[in-house]
């Protein structure tokens, strides 16, 4: 079968090419489709990290639900129009910001010897199977779990309120 390294290279290439195209495509439908590709690539990377559960959830939630919603809105608004070029100042600034982030994040790690050496995995640690993750969610991360559920509820109420067509007698 695939060696882990090959799988890593293939999946990260998919993720990065997808991401680059999201940024550069003029047509929002094409951008959305490339984003789906990028998400699938990242899901593959999760698989190579031994997090198959997260990979499947990534495909289901991101590619299957969130991006379908995006596509739905794009089609609903019929947005085939190409947009004008962005501001040149913003463009330059963004590249600077991107490179700065890259340097900030990647450089110290690439230099640290511990990370460059093959780390010794702790085999006693609970693996990322559904049972272990669920245990964590209901014990160690119980509070964030509740907060996130509250957030989802609030988001749902907010989304319904925002998307509601205002009544005639109501000002916008």
């Amino acid at each position: 079968m695939l060696s882990e390294r090959t799988a890593f290279l293939v999946f990260s290439a998919i993720a990065l090419i997808g991401a680059a195209n999201v940024v550069t495509r003029k047509n929002p439908v094409h951008a959305a489709l490339w984003l789906v590709g990028s998400f699938l690539g990242v899901a593959g990377l999760f698989l190579t990290l031994g997090a198959g559960l997260l990979g499947a959830i990534q495909v289901m939630v991101y590619a299957g639900a969130i991006m379908v919603l995006f596509l739905f809105v794009i089609l609903l608004l019929n947005l085939d129009v190409t947009e004008g070029d962005g501001l040149s100042f913003a463009r330059g600034a963004s590249f600077l910001a991107a490179i700065a982030t890259l340097a900030l994040v990647a450089l110290p790690f690439a230099q640290s010897r511990e990370l460059r050496a093959a780390a010794t995995p702790d085999h006693a640690a609970p693996d990322a199977s559904a049972g272990n993750v669920a245990d964590l969610l209901f014990t160690r991360y119980a509070l964030p779990f509740e907060v996130v559920s509250l957030l989802l509820l609030i988001a749902m109420v907010g989304a319904i309120h925002l998307a509601r067509r205002p009544r005639r007698d109501e000002s916008v």
Binding site: L16, A20, L79
Partner: peptide, 28 residues
Amino acid sequence: VPQAWYLIVSALLFGLGIVGFVTRRNSL
């Protein structure tokens, strides 16, 4: 695969995200 490689891929993805967010004017 060393973790540093994943971090580099992640940094690139994040950088592309920033580029997109700042340069594109389409809110979607």
